[in-house]
């Protein structure tokens, strides 16, 4: 029997879909008994969402005012306390999970598998290295607890329809006061979330300006798509950092990824290679993006974007 604890990611209202993908990853382990841990100020709403995920047996709520914001230094000792009963602790490979999980591994003195992309056994996994240019199969010691961050682009979300038990946990853990949350600034829009959208339209440096990104937004809205950007476009100041797709930005797996004016640097391709269909539009027919695209169109993107927008839905 393998007891797997998954750290749920949420904003107090909605469970992040990354959590459901971690559940799918965990169900790939034989004889898995899966629990989800939720830390927050009031996790009642997200607890019922977590309990509905198919394959989950129990949801553990840890509500206290200090958990209002997910600070790794605050959550880690609580997760260590909860982890005592588990053989595996998984978190999503999002900025939340990547920040928190190694701190927990450090406190426990155990190894972590980062960006787990395939389960080959309860202690044998595959993960990417060198920006996805190589895939390693790693094995850990079954006598020790295993921590992992789950590469969410590699797994489908678990279905709903489950009916897990929900339990409130009062943990007697002293929390540090050396780390304080001050605030957040998000470029939140009405558009779909980049990480989980089924369609994504991304722009590169060839767009030439932040102003020209508006053409991209307009096309994305017609498609009901989220908007992304290459690292070059973000570095040039055309788009905010949270829009960056690639190895050092978001790794995504939409049904359709449309790359406009993106040449296709390896670190960008790493972030999109799990997309179902890749569409490339670029003026340079030799651009590496065409090597991985399912369909490509060579031409002037400032003519193509408006025409495409016009012809979609006709």
């Amino acid at each position: 029997m393998h007891k797997i604890l998954i750290v749920g990611e949420h904003d107090g209202k909605t469970l992040n879909p990354a959590t459901a993908k971690c559940v799918t990853c965990a169900t790939g382990i034989a004889d898995a008994q899966i629990s989800i841990a939720l830390f927050g100020e009031d996790t009642s709403a997200v607890a019922s969402q977590a309990a509905a995920l198919s394959g989950v047996e129990s949801v553990l709520r840890v509500d206290r005012p200090e958990n209002a914001h997910p600070l790794a230094a605050i959550l880690a000792p609580q997760l260590v306390a909860l982890a005592a009963d588990y053989t595996h602790v998984f978190g999503p490979s999002t900025s939340f999970g990547k920040d928190l999980m190694p701190r927990v591994a450090g406190l426990l003195g155990v190894a972590q598998v980062s960006d787990l992309m395939a389960v080959e056994g309860a202690y044998r996994y595959r993960r990417p290295i060198y920006a996805g240019n190589a895939i390693v199969t790693v094995e850990s010691d079954p006598s020790r607890k295993l921590l992992a961050t789950v590469r969410v682009a590699s797994f489908q979300a678990a279905a709903t329809g489950g009916n897990a038990s929900i339990e409130s946990k009062a943990l007697n853990v002293a929390l540090p006061t050396h780390t304080r949350y001050l605030g957040a600034k998000s470029g939140s829009t009405d558009r779909p979330d980049l990480q989980t959208a089924s369609r994504v339209v991304s722009g590169g440096r060839a767009l030439g300006s932040a102003e020209n990104f508006k053409l991209l937004f307009s096309l994305a809205d017609k498609l009901g798509a989220a908007v992304g950007a290459s690292r070059a476009a973000v570095d040039a100041g055309y788009a905010p950092n949270e829009m960056q797709v690639g190895q050092t930005g978001k790794i995504i797996s939409p049904e359709m990824y449309m790359a406009i004016g993106i040449s296709g640097a390896i670190q960008h391709l790493t972030g999109i290679k799990d997309a179902r269909t890749i569409v490339a539009i670029n003026k340079d027919g030799e651009a590496p993006i065409f090597e991985v695209a399912d369909v490509g169109l060579v031409g002037d993107l400032f003519q193509i974007m408006p025409e495409l927008e016009r012809l979609i839905g006709t």
Partner: peptide, 29 residues
Amino acid sequence: HLKVLKTEPPAQRQKGVIVKDVPELVAFL
């Protein structure tokens, strides 16, 4: 703590088709 059993190249995507204009692209999609 983590034994590396093997190191392999990633799965490659197949190169797709190049269309000649926007109407062809829309038809493909």
